[in-house]
């Protein structure tokens, strides 16, 4: 299915205050690929992701999702295809209860009654937030908010999943749970993260952004073996690839 291809050509973005956040980024992500976008704080990761469902408008350059170029007219369709989890879950939760929030998307897609209830309940269960269903989102802990925010997007069953730092703020168990969940999601996935072990476990491909430019794009393991490259991008090897300081051996992930 060519529908799940993401193609970005020469994307530039200059913020209103003159900050050049992206200066000519190009890549092509194929159907079913799982790609990590990593880089230092301020490298432009969030800026890049926010272009993929039209939240930000490119200063110049093109974005294609499947066969469809991103433009004003195609935006509603593209937004249905690309599910986006924001870096800050507070931006994503706005309904009175967790249930209502997760139901918001499916309702817009036309689901009602039992189908709706089931979809919401299943999705919340998937992210381990079934027990939060009746709570108001603003009474949740940071990690719980994150899980619910992810559920709101999963409930729309998007073809392409885009996530900005999905595991930040999650406890180790929830992180593992999310990693398992993402592992089972067979559509195209793109996410940014500072959790390099997760990147290693989930993504066969990694793109390093540095000062708004692509510094490296290739197989995750190769990139993580290149220490010079990592240092230049203000990054480090994942812990699981570093020697164990206690036993001297390698961890297995």
């Amino acid at each position: 299915m060519s529908h799940h291809i993401v193609e970005v050509t020469n994307l530039r973005h200059i913020y209103a205050d003159g900050t050049v956040a992206l200066q000519g980024v190009s890549f092509r992500i194929h159907h079913g690929e799982s790609v990590a976008i990593i880089g230092a704080n301020g490298a432009g990761k969030s800026t890049l992701l926010q272009h993929l469902n039209g939240y930000l408008e490119a200063t110049s350059g093109d974005i294609r999702i499947g066969d469809t170029p991103l433009s004003k007219t195609t935006l509603p369709d593209i937004r249905r295809t690309v599910g986006m989890v924001f870096q800050n879950p507070d931006d994503q939760l706005f309904m009175p209860t967790v249930f209502d929030d997760v139901a918001f998307g499916p309702l817009n897609l036309g689901l009602t009654g039992e189908h709706l209830e089931k979809r919401v309940a299943d999705t919340l269960e998937q992210v381990g937030a079934g027990h939060l269903s009746d709570k108001p989102p603003y009474h949740l802990s940071g990690g719980e908010k994150k899980r619910v925010a992810i559920a709101t997007v999963l409930a729309m069953s998007p073809d392409i999943l885009v996530m900005d730092e999905p595991t930040s703020g999650l406890d180790p168990f929830a992180r593992r749970q999310l990693m398992d969940l993402l592992g089972k999601f067979h559509h195209t996935k793109i996410f940014t993260s500072h959790d390099l072990d997760m990147v290693l476990a989930l993504c066969e491909r990694t793109i390093i952004l540095h000062d708004g430019m692509i510094m490296a794009d290739g197989a995750t393991e190769e990139i993580f073996r290149n220490e010079q490259l990592l240092a230049a991008g203000r990054l480090e090897k994942p812990f699981s690839m570093q020697g164990c300081p206690i036993c001297g051996g390698r961890l297995n992930l």
């Binding site: 939240y55 937004r79 690309v82 986006m84 931006d91 918001f104 998307g105 817009n108 009654g113 997007v153």
Partner: peptide, 24 residues
């Protein structure tokens, strides 16, 4: 800005200017 981002997230979830109530 935040209201803008929330609006964005509503659009991202298929909001087209119509609200649906859960109860029919």
């Amino acid at each position: 800005q935040r209201a803008e981002r929330i609006h964005m997230s509503m659009l991202a979830r298929g909001f087209v200017g119509r609200f649906h109530a859960r109860r029919q």
